[in-house]
Design a protein around this nucleic acid. Structure first.
Lengths: 315, 315
DNA sequence: GACAGGGCCGCTCAGATGAGCACACTGTCA
DNA sequence: TGACAGTGTGCTCATCTGAGCGGCCCTGTC
């Protein structure tokens, strides 16, 4: 008859004890003395209170960052950093701005004076570059050739130059297109001193930022500029995603395509050597490509929005 | 530049660590190993996370009991038990039923086979008695004379008898009115064997249940049955509350009135000797009387509803 | 380049804590 | 009455934890 933990007195006692422990920060010994219980009894009451839901602990951030999804992404894919921004995604330009700013904050936070930054070309990377505060003398390396879109934003060269100018570090840039008509031209371009010099920096790059495309119309800038034959060929090879020109199958395996021979940019092997590659994907349609990128092991960081994070996690 | 705790990476790291610690129950050492930090750093992150509101701990009960108010009442007045029922208070009969059931649960929970139960008369005490499960052979003692209301509920005798019958314990009852016309009659009644025998049990009573009245029209059954002169006399003496016929000033001091001489019931001194007296007040109008009762030190337990609890705490 | 100031970090050690064990009590059955 | 399973409680000891202290690095100044 003595004490039934589910009765009113038990509930109120548990709540009192829980309040003292969790909110007032008292030790269990103090609480035991105060209530005339043994410290073991206090421990059991507290366990029961958590078990029964009387004490609820929630981890929630008031700001823009969706910590729940961030942590889940980080844990699920063993990432170094994951930042999920809780922002409406109906307006793509605004969304890209939000992600760019979040990525800029992330980069500013994790970069050290010893880092060498690599930048691939993507619209989200441009957005990030615009929001980036001056970095501590960080050298910046261009990872991909120029994919010029009429009326589009800055080219990869412009972005790298801009970031390096602000940081005061060296800018390792090269003027070459991302794709060329044949492999021989690509080989010749790679021999050019400027290109070769930039590529020689690749092993030194410690942090890089890239976009993610899905191999489908409107989901990859690269997809949208290559020929129908190239599109079909990569489809046949099972390409699902491209990360700055590195093609991946749905399960994250790098796919070497003939098109790769005709591109001036970082390879899968080179990307693997970079300690942390941060990607900035957006749009729920890209969930499959993002999963491929995260599974590939090439990517160590992600900045995205809630809807895509959910799509990736629930798939 | 290294780690700014307010940046996205810092927030997500804090959230990860907090999740591991608070939700997964890992130790700080384990977490430190997992994240490559020192356990001190983990401790600081967790402190900062709580400080900043990233981790929120709330104590809340899903059921009828308002644990927040219960704990506050209990702490504020140093009570042994406080149970605040979160129930609408527009219908008095229904409210009394809720409080009666809660009080019955409380009593059933805290009573032991060694206890002797005293019952004063109040409508809420009747409601409690109706909801009370059989107690373990508990003797029951009547604390107050009979206040008969035409068409009212059971008298104090009926209530005591009913509870004792269910418990299988002795019923110490007496048939005498609560108030009589003069002090001499009261003294004579107290000499009667039946009354004297019941009163002789008073020092043995370990738990009692009573109502609380406020000395105002409609706020005290006693007020409503005594003469205008008595009402005025007690007003002049500064009486604010009556707890089963024990009169209290607003600051909780017992007030001895001439009327007390003409009553057959427990005195303030006798009540003080009872280890725990539980009161069951309701109606926000009684806030002042309840405060007086709780301050008096005569009362060790309270069962009430949220609105009155708030009124008492905020006054 | 030297140096003082300030903040951050990890170490030490005493105190707090939890897992596991032993014991007491209760109600049940033979 | 006595044996016994089940439950609740507190003890022991190894581990975990936090306050305080001192060292280290970074920064700004001369």
């Amino acid at each position: 008859m003595a004490d039934d933990r589910t009765g009113p007195a038990g509930i109120v006692l548990s709540a009192s004890v829980a309040r003292r422990f969790y909110l007032d920060g008292r030790s269990k010994v103090e609480i035991a003395d105060e209530f005339g219980l043994s410290r073991f009894k206090v421990a059991r009451l507290l366990d029961a209170a958590r078990e029964s839901g009387l004490v609820r602990i929630e981890i929630r951030h008031e700001g823009e960052i969706d910590v729940e999804s961030s942590v889940r992404l980080r844990d699920r894919y063993g990432l170094q950093h994951a930042v999920v921004v809780d922002t409406p995604d109906d307006d793509v330009a605004s969304l890209r701005g939000h992600l760019g700013r979040a990525a800029a904050q992330l980069l500013a936070e994790v970069i050290t004076p010893d880092d060498v930054l690599g930048l691939a070309w993507a619209r989200a990377v441009s957005a990030m570059a615009e929001a980036l505060p001056p970095l501590p003398g960080t050298p910046v390396v261009q990872l991909t050739g120029v994919l010029s879109l009429p009326g589009g934003p800055d080219t990869s060269v412009d972005v790298v130059r801009g970031v390096a100018r602000a940081s005061g570090g060296a800018a390792h840039v090269f003027y070459a297109p991302f794709t060329v008509p044949d492999a021989a031209t690509a080989r010749a371009l790679r021999q050019q001193p400027e290109v070769a010099s930039a590529f020689a920096q690749l092993p030194l790059v410690t942090k890089a930022v890239a976009g993610v495309g899905q191999w489908a119309p409107g989901q990859s800038t690269l997809y949208d500029v290559v020929s129908d034959e190239d599109r079909a060929a990569l489809h046949r090879l099972g390409v699902c995603a491209d990360v700055s020109g590195v093609f991946l199958s749905a399960d994250g395996e790098p796919v070497h395509a003939e098109l790769s021979e005709r591109m001036i940019g970082i390879s899968a092997d080179q990307m693997r050597e970079i300690p942390e590659v941060v990607v900035i994907p957006y749009g729920t349609a890209k969930a499959c490509a993002v999963r491929a990128a995260l599974r590939s092991g090439l990517v160590g960081g992600i900045v995205t929005h809630t809807a895509l994070a959910h799509a990736v996690l629930e798939g």
